[in-house]
Amino acid sequence: MKKILIITCSSFTAIVLLFALFSTFDIVPELSKSIVFQLFTMSMSIALLMFISERAEDKLDISSLTVDALIRMLICYIVVFVEGSLFRMFPFSWKAIASISPVLIPTFVITYVIGYFTIVDCANKINKSIKRKY
């Protein structure tokens, strides 16, 4: 649950900031109350699906970084594309995929980096505990 919340919060923060930035250049629509809620729903859906994919990767013993990144990227695109179309943020078309990429790719990278640093922090704590033992 904690992990899902961390991914939701970090991706939501990143996507709102990028949305606000890109809306000033008219790449994406202006941020409104409904868009904020829609973006949060997207962030939460992505976090949930990523959690499920992690379980599946463990079961299937997938350890490749490339496969892991591709699965995560695919989840992001599917959720944003499907929910974005349902919420009528953009039309349900292939062109929409290109239009969501400027927001989606940086959000994905930021979330991935935050996830990595969470693991680094965990490793540091374990190493401290090991050092105490010796």
Partner: peptide, 22 residues
């Protein structure tokens, strides 16, 4: 992991991997 049980008392160092594993 799905196929491994480790004795934690023989671990000397832990490193984070980009894939989110240790």
């Amino acid at each position: 992991s799905k196929n491994c049980i480790l004795n934690t008392s023989v671990v000397t160092f832990v490193r984070a991997q980009l894939s989110g594993r240790l």
